[in-house]
C-alpha cells in the first residue's frame, strides 16, 4: 500500500534563522571573544546554536552563558576562518542570524548528588561554563565541583577574571595549567592530564565532563580510568563539520552518530570504539 507521509502540523523550515543584535563584545584572548545577543531562550548546558554572519555563512557555536538567564544569549568564539572572522568584526548594534538550541548537552540531572570534575582545554571551556553556572547556582545538588583547565599560555586562557573568582570560592576547586609560561607564572606548567592525579574526587561517585581537542580528551579519559573512573561516568563533547544541525545534511556523522542530534556530548562508552580510529 502507498504510504502517505504524516507530518506534524507544527513542522517548520528548520534552516531559517531569526535575526538578533549584538549587545556587547568582550575580548578574551588575542583571537577569542565573547559576544552577547539581545535574544534569549532556554537551553541546557552543552547545547549550541547556529550563528549566521550575513553573506559569509553559518557555524555551530556553543552557548557559553548562564542557563538561568534567558534574556540573552552568550557565545564565546575563536576566530579561525571565514565565518568566525566575520562574527569577530561585529560590534554592538550589528545584526546576525541565530537558530537553536541544538543537541544533547551535559548530564546535569545524572550528576545530581555526585562530584563533578570538569576538564577543559582552550576554547573547550566555553561549552562547560554553563555547567559551572548551573552547579554553583544549585550548589547543594552536587558534591565536590572541580575544574581543571589547560591552555597554551597564560594569555590564551579565556574567562580569566571568572577563573580567579571561582578559584577564590571555598565550594569549588580550580586548577589551571599552561603548556608554556614565563617565569613569573606561579602555578602548573604541562598538559592538563597531569592535574588529574592532583585533585580529590571519589571515583565511584563522580561524573567527569571533558571538552577540548580530540587527542587531549583521549588522554584525559585514560587518566581518569587510571583513577578508577569507569567509562559510563565520563562525558566528552565531539566536533565535526556541521551544516544543518538538525540531522539532515549528513556532515557531522561520527560512526553511527549524528553529532548535532545525538551529541555533541556523548557518554564515553558510546564513542569509545570509534574515537581512536584515524580519519573516522
Amino acid at each position: 500500500m502507498q504510504q502517505r507521509s504524516t507530518i506534524a502540523p507544527n513542522s517548520f523550515d528548520a534552516l531559517i534563522p531569526e535575526t538578533a543584535r549584538v549587545t556587547s563584545v568582550r575580548k578574551e584572548t588575542v583571537d577569542t571573544f565573547t559576544m552577547d545577543l539581545d535574544r534569549g531562550f532556554r537551553f541546557e548546558p552543552g547545547q549550541f546554536n547556529m550563528l549566521y554572519a550575513f553573506g559569509a555563512g553559518e557555524v555551530p557555536i556553543s552557548i557559553s552563558g548562564d542557563p538561568a538567564d534567558s534574556s540573552r544569549l552568550v557565545h564565546t568564539i575563536r576566530s579561525v576562518g571565514a565565518v568566525t572572522k566575520r562574527l569577530e568584526a561585529l560590534r554592538p548594534g550589528d545584526m546576525l542570524g541565530v537558530r537553536g538550541p541544538y543537541g544533547e548537552g551535559w548530564p546535569m540531572a545524572k550528576a545530581r548528588g555526585h562530584d563533578i570534575v570538569i576538564v577543559a582545554g582552550g576554547i573547550g571551556l566555553a561549552p562547560l561554563r554553563p555547567v559551572i553556572y548551573h552547579a554553583l547556582r544549585h550548589r547543594d545538588d552536587y558534591g565536590n565541583v572541580v575544574l581543571l583547565y589547560g591552555a597554551r599560555s597564560p594569555e590564551d586562557m579565556i574567562f580569566e577574571s571568572e577563573l580567579h573568582r571561582w578559584r577564590g570560592r571555598f565550594d569549588m576547586g580550580v586548577k589551571v595549567i599552561v603548556d608554556r609560561a614565563p617565569s613569573s607564572w606561579r602555578t602548573h606548567v604541562g598538559v592538563v592530564t597531569t592535574l588529574i592525579p592532583k585533585v580529590y574526587f571519589d571515583p565511584i561517585d563522580t561524573i567527569a565532563m571533558v571538552c577540548g581537542p580530540e587527542v587531549m580528551m583521549r588522554f584525559v579519559v585514560r587518566e581518569f580510568q587510571n583513577r578508577g573512573l569507569t567509562e559510563d561516568k565520563i562525558y566528552v563533547s565531539m566536533e565535526r563539520n556541521m551544516k544543518c544541525a538538525v540531522g539532515l545534511c549528513g556532515h557531522c556523522q561520527f560512526g553511527p552518530e549524528f553529532i548535532c542530534a545525538d551529541g555533541p556530548v556523548f557518554r564515553y562508552d558510546r564513542v569509545r570504539d570509534i574515537i581512536g580510529i584515524r580519519e573516522i
Binding site: 504510504q3 507521509s5 507530518i7 506534524a8 513542522s11 517548520f12 528548520a14 538538525v246 539532515l248 542530534a261
Partner: peptide, 26 residues
C-alpha cells in the same frame, strides 16, 4: 521510502522534500 525515513521521520522534517513528496503518485 528510505529517503522518507531520513528526511521526514526525524525530529526535524525537511519541508522542501516534504512539499514534493506528499502529492507523489507512483
Amino acid at each position: 521510502s528510505k529517503l522518507d525515513d531520513v528526511l521526514l521521520q526525524g525530529d526535524y522534517v525537511d519541508s522542501a522534500y516534504d512539499d514534493r513528496r506528499k502529492p507523489v503518485m507512483n
